[in-house]
């Protein structure tokens, strides 16, 4: 792992809580690492767990999914479904030998700008420690 390795992280945020929380972090001028790229979805329930696999395969070193706290889902229960699906995925990925530091899920509400910063820092730090995930790159073979 090179010393100046910067992990590339793809994050899926729900529109109503976490994306708004990340916006609030901005409005509050909270500073955090720039490694996390956000893809906005309406609800974490939309996040297909295979997106995580795909992101790792396409070049992400870490993936984050963040949504509303349980009970706060704008769509009533989407985050509960997400929690179950992604919890299972996490188990499967770990079993397959994917470093658990590469995939995180968090609850960040629209008022938790600071928590968003913490989540980003933790995700980046973990992915940094886990190192580049070259082993799973789609293009590693025969390009």
């Amino acid at each position: 792992m090179s010393a100046n390795y910067e992990p590339n992280i793809v994050a899926f945020l729900c529109n109503w809580c976490s994306y708004a929380g990340a916006d609030l972090a901005g409005t509050s001028r909270v500073q955090y690492p720039s490694n996390v790229q956000i893809i906005r979805v309406m609800c974490t329930g939309r996040v297909n767990p295979l997106y995580v696999v795909n992101a790792l395969q396409q070049g992400a070193d870490g993936v984050l999914v963040s949504g509303c706290h349980p009970g706060d889902c704008h769509y009533m229960e989407g985050n509960y479904f997400a929690r179950r699906r992604l919890g299972m995925l996490k188990d499967l990925l770990e079993f397959a030998g994917v470093d658990p530091r590469r995939f995180h899920m968090s609850w960040v509400s629209a008022s938790e700008g600071h928590k968003w910063k913490e989540v980003v820092e933790k995700t980046v730090e973990d992915a940094r420690e886990a190192g580049p995930f070259e082993g799973f790159r789609r293009r590693q073979i025969d390009w």
Partner: peptide
């Protein structure tokens, strides 16, 4: 969404 992921992943 998948192309979005690809675009973010492919750009180092």
């Amino acid at each position: 969404i998948l192309p979005q992921i690809a675009a973010l992943g492919a750009m180092k």
